[in-house]
Write a protein that binds this DNA or RNA. Structure first.
Length: 507
RNA sequence: GCCGCGUUGGUCAAGGGGUUAAGACGCCUCCCUUUCACGGAGGAAUCACGGGUUCGAAUCCCGUACGUGGUACCA
């Protein structure tokens, strides 16, 4: 049994969506559980769609998710180069080899001629408009032309493509790790272009050549590739590598939550949640597409929610660390059907991870958010205490600011309407006395503050419950946050007194 | 149009001939908390439809519907 080698092969056209990250994750997990290699290969053969910076962006996303490849364009490896645009010559040689062995041919048809052929077929009521065995002997290619005619066109530098010659009447049966036996009829397959007029290979030629040369053992990719599986299998066969063909698995699609279709980058804004791992700014349009990272997702949660969207180990477990996934994931148990993405559930995963992880894991990140909002943290111990106090109420990392800024800054607005209806002189008096009592206090622990508060309330014949809400409003500004005495204890005597006085003055 | 693939509550899903058809998110009720959350206890809600096979079908087969992907010199 050869070593397991899998690859993640995105095209650098901008952004990295949920489905892409999940594909990378499943490949990574499989490699790890077999002690194999996880390779990043960049499919940049379409020059017109290439976007500068996109490759670096992909690297960053993988790194954030903790899915480090051990071979890539950036880090090199034994099978370099890993960028397809740099392997142009290799593909051309194999394409020509296929022509020589009679499995491919030169086609000189212009796009207009092909379009005309399709119109013609349509006019005759044909449902199948492909460039295939039905029409190829009527087209301008080296199969129909005399050898010297074709050679003359080649000599005259006529633009051409190389097409795969698919013979009809054959049933191709391929085993898919997830779906089992898949059957295809070659009658329905067209003569796919292998080498484009610009000399670049199409995906079909490039994957097969690279997967062979890079000794890829398993190919896990999106379900959108299933229809071209027979083409790839045929290519493995025609190139003489049939015995080296990798095992295949086609992953279900991630769909829009509200209805129809594959989740795409345009859905993000419309539905109010990100579809990319990290923020991506299109350099051409300057359009920003939001990412999970910047919205306040933890990579642990992001990986977790993606892993279980389309896979389940048969138990009720839902929270998995990367290490646990490596231990328990199995590609055979991936589902057949596409799954609609649910952002509410995604937030739940993040919430679980915020609660589960020690605050040190995201303390720096939260600190940065505070600083971006004008609050400088100089007391790390206090900051950590606050984080522990409020982590249970945060779903996104960004929630920490709303839940915790009042620990470091006097609330800008005080919701006095929440207490004014039942405000009276007795309460006013109580808080005046509370200020004095707290000022004299030598103890400032949560329990001490609560004890003093309640004793003073009893002395004034007031119910503590009626006073705690006003106290909260004074300290926090609104009806939220952890226990009031915890808050008073954290912000300290001086600040507590100051906030009581401030509100009292405006009642 | 042609060719694939799929279909268990609103969503993610377990279950693959006999189950009161797990669990989670969301929603609702109650408890806890004299705030808001967290947490706890309950609740509503599901096998796309039609035929078969079988003593018995969510589970196997066929058809239909619907969804979805491909049908590019895009990946």
């Amino acid at each position: 049994m050869n070593k397991v080698r899998v690859r993640f092969a995105p095209s650098p056209t901008g952004g990295l969506h949920l489905g892409g990250v999940r594909t990378a994750l499943y490949n990574y997990l499989f490699a790890k559980q077999h002690g194999g290699d996880f390779i990043l290969r960049v499919e940049d053969t379409d020059q017109s769609r290439f976007v500068p910076g996109a490759e670096e962006y992909i690297n960053e996303c993988l790194s954030w998710c903790g899915l480090q490849p051990n071979e890539s364009p950036a880090m090199g490896g034994a099978f370099a180069p890993y960028r397809q645009s740099e392997r142009k010559k290799i593909y051309k040689d194999y394409a020509e080899q296929l022509v020589e062995s009679g499995h491919a041919y030169y086609a000189f048809d212009t796009p207009e001629e092909i379009e005309m052929m399709r119109q013609n077929l349509k006019a005759h009521g044909e449902g199948n408009l492909q460039y295939d065995h039905h029409v190829r002997m009527r087209m301008n290619n080296s199969l129909r032309l005399m050898p010297h005619e074709a050679q003359e066109l080649l000599n005259a530098a006529t633009p051409y493509v190389i097409r795969l010659k698919i013979d009809p009447g054959e049933t191709i049966s391929i085993d898919d790790v997830i779906r089992g036996d898949l059957k295809f009829d070659t009658n329905n397959i067209d003569d796919k272009v292998l080498l484009k007029a610009d000399g670049m290979p199409t995906y079909h030629l490039a994957v097969v050549v690279d997967d062979y040369l890079m000794k890829i053992s398993h190919v896990f990719r999106g379900e959108e590739w299933m229809p071209s599986l027979p083409v790839h299998a045929l290519l493995w066969k025609y190139l003489g590598w049939e015995n080296h063909m990798p095992k295949w698995a086609h992953l279900p699609l991630i769909l829009k939550p509200d209805g129809n279709g594959k989740l795409s980058k345009r859905d993000g804004d419309r539905l109010g949640f990100p579809v990319f791992a990290m923020n991506w700014t299109d350099p051409k349009t300057n359009e920003l597409i939001k990412g999970f990272k910047e919205l306040g997702f933890l990579p642990e949660a992001f990986i977790n929610l993606l892993a279980v969207l389309g896979w389940n180990d048969g138990t009720a477990q839902e929270i998995y660390s990367l290490d646990e996934l490596i231990e328990k994931f199995s590609i055979e148990k991936v589902h057949y059907a596409g799954a609609k993405f649910d952002f509410e559930k995604a937030k739940w995963f993040n919430h679980e991870w915020i609660k589960k992880l020690p605050v040190a894991r995201y303390q720096l990140q939260v600190k940065k958010i505070f600083e971006d909002n004008g609050i400088i943290i100089d007391d790390e111990a206090k900051f950590e205490r606050v984080l522990i106090l409020i982590k249970d109420r945060c779903h996104l990392i960004n929630d920490f600011f709303a839940q915790g800024n009042f620990f470091f800054k006097t609330p800008a607005t005080i919701d006095t309407t929440a207490i004014s209806p039942s405000w009276n002189d007795n309460k006013q008096m109580f808080f005046v006395e509370l200020i004095r009592a707290y000022e004299l206090s030598t103890l400032w622990q949560t329990a001490d503050l609560e004890k003093e508060f309640k004793e003073l309330a009893a002395a004034n014949k007031l119910k503590p419950g009626e006073l705690m809400l006003p106290f909260r409003i004074m300290l926090v500004g609104g009806k939220f946050g952890p226990g009031v005495f915890e808050i008073a204890s954290v912000i300290g005597k001086e600040e507590t007194v100051k906030r009581i006085e401030h509100t009292l003055a405006s009642m």
